[in-house]
């Protein structure tokens, strides 16, 4: 079983689904305009103050593009007074002045997403010419003004040959860490799954060939780091739905911030309690030893098998012959 917490110390929020890019794979199916059901900035400020009062000390903010949320910098400054804040962004709105504004608002870390180590690969996904150079410039600006900065890459067929180049680029830019993330079958990614998803063996081969430059840290959640972090995870998406983890957004709802609090949902939502308890059919001993949790990621386990207790097919020891480059029929978009 997993460790048990009476209240979550860390929370992730997707503050908006508005974004100026149009990524082919976007998990949130984001568009230029915010959706009408989104929490207003006032509702978010109130909710975040409540989170802090309820013991949350680390707040991860993503989107969409968080910087597009009107009033975002004020909200960030307010949150950063009592919580370590992280902002995940594609970076195209971060020039030197915005980097300074983020620093002055007290941000703890900025995570800049790219979809490749070259303009053509990145922009094949984003559909926005010039967006790669803008993301790279954002990293440069953030590092120059002393903001701890990571780069993130979702591993796909198109960018697998460029992951090493991304590590080298990130190290050269002064980023502290690169996170290579698995591709999740969510939002628009489902529509192009077969075009962009790699079989597990190719994913492992890509990761196994990486040489991490001195001074850079590589974060990856494949074997032997396949954790089941549901036991400590808490997340809310733009419309206020409490989903436990952004990767569970299409599968669960533990309530909505408009009608309950996150702490109340943490204590009472039955499925959340089941997921946090971490009962699974099988575990990889190496990953359990390294991560102190069992069974690997629940989002991918559920996506492929339709059971919360199923083995995670992204783990080599639990894959059982599942071809990750093919989506189960159940998940195919209508």
């Amino acid at each position: 079983m997993n460790p048990r917490l009476t209240a979550p110390p860390k929370v992730a929020i997707s503050i908006t689904e508005a974004c100026p890019l149009s990524c082919k794979h976007c998990y949130g199916d984001c568009g230029r305009e915010a959706r009408p059901a989104e929490l207003s900035i006032g509702e978010w400020r109130e909710a975040i103050a409540r989170l802090a009062a309820d013991g949350v000390i680390s707040l991860h903010i993503e989107g969409g593009e968080p910087l597009l949320k009107p009033g975002f910098l004020d909200l960030l400054a307010e949150a950063s007074r009592s919580m370590f804040t992280m902002v995940r962004t594609h970076g195209t709105l971060i020039d030197a002045a915005m980097a300074r504004a983020l620093r002055d608002a007290g941000v703890g870390r900025v995570l800049v997403d790219v979809m490749g180590a070259t303009g053509p690969t990145h922009e094949w996904f984003t559909g926005a010419p010039g967006s790669f150079d803008a993301s790279v410039a954002a990293v440069r600006h953030l590092v120059a003004c002393g903001v701890a900065t990571d780069m993130l890459l979702i591993l796909t067929r198109q960018n697998a040959p460029e992951v090493q180049d991304l590590l080298d680029l990130a190290a050269g830019l002064g980023a502290e860490r690169v996170g290579v993330l698995r591709l999740y079958p969510l939002g628009r990614a489902k529509r192009i799954w077969q075009e962009i998803a790699l079989p597990l063996a190719d994913q492992m081969r890509t990761l196994g060939a990486l040489r991490v430059p001195a001074g850079l840290t590589l974060m990856q959640s494949w074997h032997p780091n396949d954790h089941n972090c549901c036991w400590q995870s808490a997340a809310v998406i733009a419309n206020g739905e409490i989903v436990g983890c952004p990767y569970l957004r299409e599968y669960v709802s533990h309530g909505n911030l408009r009608s309950t609090t996150l702490l109340e949902a943490w204590r009472t939502a039955p499925l959340w309690q089941v997921l946090r308890a971490g009962a699974v059919e099988r575990s990889c001993p190496d990953c359990s030893a390294a991560e102190g949790s069992h069974g690997g990621c629940r989002a991918t386990a559920y996506a492929w098998h339709g059971r919360w207790t199923a083995p995670d097919p992204f783990d080599v020891t639990l894959n059982d012959g599942v071809d990750l480059s093919v989506l189960p029929d159940r998940l195919l978009p209508a």
Partner: peptide
């Protein structure tokens, strides 16, 4: 956990 806002770190 200890949060230090003057030098943001956890």
């Amino acid at each position: 956990l200890a949060y230090t806002p003057a030098r943001p770190a956890l």
